[in-house]
Amino acid sequence: MAILIDIISWILLLAGSFFCFTGGVGLLRFPDFFSRIHAASLTDTLGAGLILIGLMFQAGWGLVLPKLILILLFSAITGTTASHAMAKAALKSGLQPQVVGSVKSESGGAPSNS
């Protein structure tokens, strides 16, 4: 049983490291600021999430587990908000995203049913 938990957490840690590394490479490879944010959010969501969940399997029951959950929660919320703030500040300061085109939703999003 203990070996099974160890194996699961090792797989999660390795997968998390892989996603973090992918995000780091994307940060260097992508051509413009707005596409680099996507690479950075890759490490923020699944990279951090998988590593922290892998650590949770190692932690067992105790005070360490809720602390790891708190770190996961905080990093998800603050990472999102920081990405949005950076993108908005860059746009407001006049940095134009390099895009191949733009589309507009004609239907006006979801039909509100109430």
Partner: peptide
Amino acid sequence: PMLVYVKAG
């Protein structure tokens, strides 16, 4: 990269 304008319902 694309810019999408969506309406929030």
